[in-house]
Nucleic acid binder design. Structure first.
Lengths: 145, 145
DNA sequence: TATATTTATTGTCAAATGATAACTAAAAGG
DNA sequence: CCTTTTAGTTATCATTTGACAATAAATATA
């Protein structure tokens, strides 16, 4: 297979995955958070605590706008702020209990949908699937890591 | 591996792919189209001609808002409209030459980035990669198709 | 210490997006 | 025909998001 065909396959794959992940997390609409706020919560979930600068980098948002969205999330009691003791300019954000609960709801629903999708797979197929995920991660998505 | 661990792996995988695809298509910022308009163009690219209703479904946009964005794309000369002869209520949209050119620029840049990422892979690894993409598509993303 | 840099916040404005009502034209179905 | 349904458009308004200037506070550095 040529590189260009592989690229087309990769594009189609990406589109499919995007569609599926959108479907799996459609539960977010029930929650009182905007798409950007959800992305921030998602990022917090995997790497708390996080500073506004880190969020801005990762979510691709300017620092002022990140600050604004964090304020809104705090007003909704979905995250908490604390000052870093070693550098008191830095603010450390983490999910609040309510924020955790929200993410548990959304992720729980997603996991349910995911497991329906893989319900018919045999143990062998599950292992193949896991290896396929690992391979793409290692060879393409995170080649350095 | 348990189902819940596989789900976590799937979530991490999705996050990585999202990040990479965002990086690969960062050339869009150079173009005079909004994110939603780009998604419409992307959809047109793979399945033209398309009707406003189809776009609304696929891009998850209301029909009135779809109509508005299509008008803007037409004003930018990025797509063309024609009435369906068999049902004159239906409007058929396709990329204009300018729209094609835009997508060629963006996709060309993405392909270049992709090929840099896979540049070091051996022929065997490329084949493994291709099979991994196919496997995930078939077993998880498009189980019915 | 004095200055520069980093981190974060606030405020403001423009643009993009979402939601909804009102309307036209064509087709479908009685 | 006449009514209903479908596809699309236009207009309007609220909310979200993006961009940028100005500021404060803590740290780093000369």
């Amino acid at each position: 297979m040529e590189h260009s065909m592989l690229f087309e396959k990769f594009v189609a794959f990406t589109a499919s995955l995007h569609e599926v992940s959108h479907e799996l997390t459609r539960g977010v609409k029930q929650e009182d958070v905007t798409p950007i706020q959800y992305r921030i919560l998602e990022y917090m979930m995997v790497s708390q605590p996080v500073t506004p600068s880190e969020i801005a980098d990762c979510v691709d948002l300017s620092l002022p706008n990140t600050s604004r969205e964090l304020r809104k999330l705090m007003e909704k009691n979905l995250c908490e702020k604390a000052t870093d003791d070693t550098d008191r300019r830095r603010q450390l954000f983490r999910l609040s209990p309510d924020g955790q609960a929200l993410m548990n709801r959304v992720m729980g629903q997603a996991q349910q949908g995911f497991q329906q999708r893989i319900a018919d797979l045999t143990a062998d197929e599950l292992q193949e699937l896991e290896q396929a995920l690992t391979l793409i991660q290692r060879k393409v998505l995170r080649p350095k890591a």
